[in-house]
Design a binder for these strands. Sequence first.
DNA 1: ACCTGAACACCGTTCAAGT
DNA 2: ACCTGAACACCGTTCAAGT
Lengths: 232, 232
Amino acid sequence: MPARKVATREPLTRDRVLAAARDLADEDGLDALTMRRLAEALGVEAMSLYHHVPNKDAILDGLVELAFAEFETEGAQDGTPTTTPATWQHDLRARILAARRVLLRHRWVPQLVENRAMASPAMIRYTDDVVGLMRAGGLSFDLIHHSLHALGSRMYGFTQELMPNESNSNVDMDPRMMAMVPNLAAMLAGVVHDEPGDTLGWCDDQTEFEFGLDLLLDGIERRRVAEGAPPG
Amino acid sequence: MPARKVATREPLTRDRVLAAARDLADEDGLDALTMRRLAEALGVEAMSLYHHVPNKDAILDGLVELAFAEFETEGAQDGTPTTTPATWQHDLRARILAARRVLLRHRWVPQLVENRAMASPAMIRYTDDVVGLMRAGGLSFDLIHHSLHALGSRMYGFTQELMPNESNSNVDMDPRMMAMVPNLAAMLAGVVHDEPGDTLGWCDDQTEFEFGLDLLLDGIERRRVAEGAPPG
DNA sequence: ACCTGAACACCGTTCAAGT
DNA sequence: ACCTGAACACCGTTCAAGT
């Protein structure tokens, strides 16, 4: 073989491993992300991964880092000030809704964020930004602290899917069942739902998310006024 | 061996399997709940379990049922009316705080409730009770529906542990790190925390939970007034 | 230095066999 | 009918060996 180079395979790196892990999770879900399947996707043996990553937990932590890095770039798109006066509510709302747009691209983020220790530097940096936004709005540290807890996972752009619905409930809503849960049956009959598709789930569409978010933001603002806004 | 009976081993039943599974999860956590270890705790082989339960998922579903059954009995203790007028807020608040007391006894409930399909009849019945309470308070079905989403897991007595803290963060808060997250560092320095112990985690003590819950309940009540309370 | 095959200690679960 | 041992198809990971 003379001068012409054979296209050599890209060398395996931590970044390539994480990118492949992200793609695998995006396409087939977190359960499909095993060391053996990930290696296969990279055209390599499972044990090769351990030369670039200490173990599987490190891969999952890396995925969280990747997602939160996307939060930054996604949030930067909302940088231009609007015509409405920039309040802490407006800024925080935009930040959180930007985070949510990332989650809609990577459905595995909530499960990972919920079930892992809150360790990642990117997550802490994100929280720091949120604290900064509220501080700039004149909230006391005490109120900010309470508010972070109150926002919970909504701070990261998601809420859990815990409402019963026809897709995740294996309980047939037969007449006997309906009689046992008359209030729920009446509510389900009385509420018109958007069609699913571009949502995290059946009911958890943008409307529901923003309702809960605004409920909290409004309530926090009222607490801020009540405590007599200290100098920002 | 004449008349005296040897103490025969209790027959294995679904109820005994579930009770042992609950105890194992209570003591050693959900990860320790494997078919083999559960069988060992019952003095039996792993495969024997499959004669009383179709598979492991059925056991996990059964655990959720057990927990929600405890919600009922725990909630019944608050049945006596107080001197304060019984509002929907008061009733719902008591119901949710009762659920929370159950969770403090069974720390595995949140993880199980979050990661499983919302299928269990007991969960649906619980939700029906919540809907009934709000309906009795004059909330429209539409507002009730939004409110269930807004309450999220708080409806079941818990919120996620997502705040960074020294116990679940492996990031050392050295001066260089502190400089990167000045707002967070300032807040952590400025907030006095209760000692942990009888809580779900570091910051998620009763105070934080009730702060978020009341924020939501107050906000919902304001929405109810705003929409002009329909006849209950 | 990087990659690999065999192996280990676990899973949940199937199957054929025991009583 | 109820229980069991061996086995299967998976895991994450260790180790000794290749280049």
